[in-house]
Design a protein around this nucleic acid. Structure first.
Length: 420
DNA sequence: TCTGGGGTCCTAGGACCC
DNA sequence: TCTGGGGTCCTAGGACCC
């Protein structure tokens, strides 16, 4: 059996842990740049705040109902996520962290254990240890565990744990599940399936395997098999990313290359840091820039360039210099740029390193410099030591006017909150 | 005025090889 | 005039997820 445990309204719940006066009240969290709504408490959902809606369109609704609004604080959410995952791991060691607020659990070896009983203990313990409410779905496949999880959330009398462990329950659950709510069925497929009179997950499983294969390829076929109880989506165990991206929309529109270069240098440095953190290197660096696609009355430009590195690297100075080189060749004067990003790919483990006969770079020297830099930043705070190209202007910085303190990770924030 | 960021997998088509 | 069959690798784009 598989489990899917996931945090309820995660970002909103994180904010409420540290402001308990907001319990029972409507809370929303906005994306970077205070752009869109990306998390809502149950109360905010009930008021009709849609997911993904731009904040400026909701101003009136927010004011009228005194909804508490937060900028996103990923340092805080990341730390709270670690706390939740640590608690879960103590119950079920075989787990795959699927996203910041979700994990798949594998119950191999739990054959003689009452899963419902254990599940109830697990969700109770997570709330007690972290203050974050969670729900757990259990079923023979990952896709069915996702379905079970939805039921655990939706109906109070499950007490946040729902198990699909018989044909009877499977049929009942699938008949009550809209096809668009199935893991792996997005907007496009929902539309297409509706055209073929498939509206529930059950309708979908009643079609032939060949038909599904023809219409939706192997991916659709896997979903079909999983819904019928045959597991075929593997559990990812390594955790190492295959590509790493750092990108941001700018707080103001930028027209000259200098502030964009500073931003790109920072994104590249961040990618290099993430590579070192997972002990990997990248052999390609891609940079993209574009104008604001919503400003339809303005000239639009999108471009991207990928450079191959002669030797895989996770050295900030090297990744930055390739990124800037790519930026230089795609940047065009005369546009208002809204967003840029750096993606590193072709990722391989740090060791063994495939070298290049004609490589002239003193790699061990730079490696030591990176180690020293990471160490200093770990002790004295992020970005205390950085590469000169990252600059200090930060004209490209994002807007986050409603940012909560980093209650759990920043000593100054902790002291401020304590004093209050 | 104001519209996020970070991932995965699959497929089709082009360029190239023998 | 007549023009095969079997591969690989790469990229772009589309679908999906959170």
């Amino acid at each position: 059996m598989y489990g899917l445990i996931d945090c309820n309204n995660f970002y909103a719940s994180c904010e409420r842990v540290f402001q308990p006066s907001l319990n029972g009240k409507a809370v929303v969290v906005l994306s970077n740049n205070d752009g869109c709504v990306i998390a809502r408490s149950a109360e905010a959902k009930a008021l009709g705040v849609p997911m993904g809606e731009p904040a400026f369109k909701l101003k009136e609704l927010i004011d009228r109902n005194q909804i508490a609004v937060f900028s996103s604080n990923y340092v805080l959410y990341g730390d709270m996520s670690n706390r939740v995952m640590t608690t879960v791991r103590a119950f079920v060691p075989q787990m795959e962290i699927y996203s910041i607020d979700e994990a798949f659990l594998s119950f191999d070896g739990f054959e003689n254990i009452d899963l419902k009983e254990m599940g109830l203990q697990l969700v109770k313990t997570v709330v007690r240890n972290t203050g974050i409410p969670v729900s757990l779905g259990i079923a023979p496949t990952k896709t069915l565990a996702k379905v079970a999880n939805k039921f655990a959330k939706k109906y109070k009398n499950y007490h946040n744990v729902c198990i699909i462990d018989s044909e009877d329950k499977r049929e009942k659950a699938l008949k009550m599940t809209d096809i668009g709510d199935v893991w792996g069925i997005g907007r496009q497929y929902k539309k297409k399936l509706a055209y073929h009179s498939i509206n529930t997950a059950w309708d979908f499983t009643m079609r032939s395997k060949n038909w599904v294969r023809q219409q939706m390829g192997v991916v659709g076929e896997r979903t079909w098999l999983e819904l019928r109880g045959t597991p075929c989506i593997e559990t990812e165990t390594t955790g190492a990313k295959k590509s790493i991206c750092t990108s941001r929309s700018f707080g103001e529109r930028l027209t000259s290359i200098e502030p964009i270069a500073e931003a790109v240098a920072n994104f590249a440095a961040s990618c290099a840091e993430k590579l070192r953190a997972q002990r990997t290197m990248a052999a390609s660096v891609m940079v993209f820039i574009h104008t604001n696609p919503f400003a339809t009355n303005q000239p639009q430009y999108y471009n991207q360039m990928t450079l191959q590195l002669p030797v895989a690297s996770n050295d900030s100075t090297e990744i930055i210099s390739y990124a800037l080189q790519a930026l230089n060749s795609i940047f065009k004067q005369g546009y208002e740029y809204k967003k840029a990003g750096v993606v590193v790919g072709n990722i391989s483990p740090e060791r063994p390193l495939q070298t290049n006969l004609f490589d002239t770079r003193n790699r061990s020297k730079y490696h030591k410099a990176m180690q020293a830099m990471d160490k200093l930043n770990a002790s004295f705070g992020r970005q205390k030591v950085k590469i000169a190209a990252q600059g200090f202007d930060r004209k490209w910085k994002l807007k986050n006017e409603k940012l909560s303190p980093c209650y759990t990770t920043n000593i100054n924030d902790i002291l401020t909150v304590k004093a209050e």
